[in-house]
């Protein structure tokens, strides 16, 4: 593992009171490590969206965070229903969130596209009835050829 800092968080299902705690915590760690504010913000937004997705759609799940000298890797996994049409789900404005969630200001269908916008690398593994794993990587320095 070398110099990697690792964090694990549980993401509870349908509990908006603690949603976002993990990403907020990661934001603090990155600031302490001296990562530039812009990168911290991008990471924190991408992670927050993934966290909220797991809360809304995935019946909760787990977050794994690994911070290295040059990048942060975040894996948010849930054992929820999976995503039927990933390409469609990536489109801005597409959402399967029920009205009750939308009324709370979530579920605008910007989640996955927002993660994509803020992450340097995004890989989503999903299987119907098994769950979804969102892999996010953000580099601390601009990457050549990425």
């Amino acid at each position: 593992m070398g110099g990697v800092v690792v964090r694990q968080y549980d993401i509870p299902a349908n509990d908006f009171t603690v949603a976002g705690e993990a990403s907020s915590n990661v934001r603090k760690i990155l600031s302490q490590l001296g990562v530039s504010p812009d990168i911290v913000k991008r990471t924190s937004i991408a992670m927050y969206e993934a966290e909220i997705n797991a809360v809304i759609h995935g019946n909760g799940g787990q977050a794994l965070v690994e911070i290295d000298t040059d990048k942060i890797y975040i894996r948010i996994s849930d054992q929820g229903p999976g995503i039927a049409d990933l390409e469609l789900a990536m489109q801005e404005g597409y959402s399967t969130a029920p009205d009750s969630i939308r009324e709370m200001g979530f579920g605008a269908g910007m989640g996955l596209s927002n993660i994509k916008k803020h992450a340097d690398q995004l890989k989503i593994d999903t299987e119907i009835d098994k769950g979804t794993t969102v892999n996010i990587t953000v580099f601390f320095k601009p990457q050549t050829g990425v």
Binding site: G3, V5, I29, S31, Q32, L33, G34, P37, I67, D68
Partner: peptide, 23 residues
Amino acid sequence: EYSPILKLDDDMEKALEKMRKID
């Protein structure tokens, strides 16, 4: 301006090492 006074170290590698030690 941003005053990054909570930063552990100017050097990322050292900062990570310190963070691991803190953990």
